[in-house]
Amino acid sequence: MLLEIKNIKKSFYQKTGVFGENRSCVKAVDNVDLVINQGENIGLVGESGCGKTTLARIVLRLLKSDSGSILFNGVDITKGSSAKLKHARRNMQMVFQDPYSSLDPRFTIENIMEEGFTLGKGEWCSKSTRRERIFETFAAVNLNRDILERYPHEFSGGERQRIAIARSLVLNPKLLILDEAVSSLDVIIQKQIVDLLADLRKRYDLTYLFISHNLKVVQKICQKIAVMYKGKIVELASADDIFKDPLHPYTKELLAASVEYRSVKGSAKIEFNDEMRLVDMGRNHFLLK
């Protein structure tokens, strides 16, 4: 087990009304359990606002969860020393949703890449070895070597996303969380990046947690798919099963909408209560019941 997410909960409170007298609560992530095994890519799908990004940020401890724990390689990183967290972050990197905001516009590409080495300064202590490594990752993501002096605003969205991927790869992480890494790109670039990810995975022995609302892309990359709805994982199964034999009404709706551009009735009535748990329906096909 590479990563184990246990009972993660996160709510956001918002004050509304003129004097902030009403506090409304959004359960962005509600009691999520998920296990990621080495080499087994998991796709996390769901509509906008269902809590995918929030979950990803909690996994990297960019956000604190309200409760629950995250085990990386069996070590709980939600408690205890920051050394544990540093170790986990070395091996766990994230590519962010928006390539236009994930690269600091005041930094040159070189500074951006150098920052990726922060936790690995011990190993990559000389500038020339770091440079070497940067070029290696550039080659892996099909970027030219001569871009080091340039600024992010000089690149297209696809190039930026490749820079972001290169940055996350410099320290050779084991787990890469891709938060809608291709959603903001046009279909041709999308395909290039998806092919690139498939290739990188083989080369560097990576495991992906691939977040998307685009099921087709997820199908290409992932072995397993988790469907998220309103902060809960409602169905978890192998990619084939999800596509051939969706059980949860929300999954059906999502499939109908994204693959066939059709809407199904019924999802409006989906309701949760706290006793619902993921139940194995056979062949490792889990459903929230």
Partner: peptide, 13 residues
């Protein structure tokens, strides 16, 4: 809230 700030945080800065 910018993603490059989060990216730096994730990189351990």
């Amino acid at each position: 809230e910018r993603e490059y700030v989060l990216a730096a945080k994730a990189a351990g800065v």
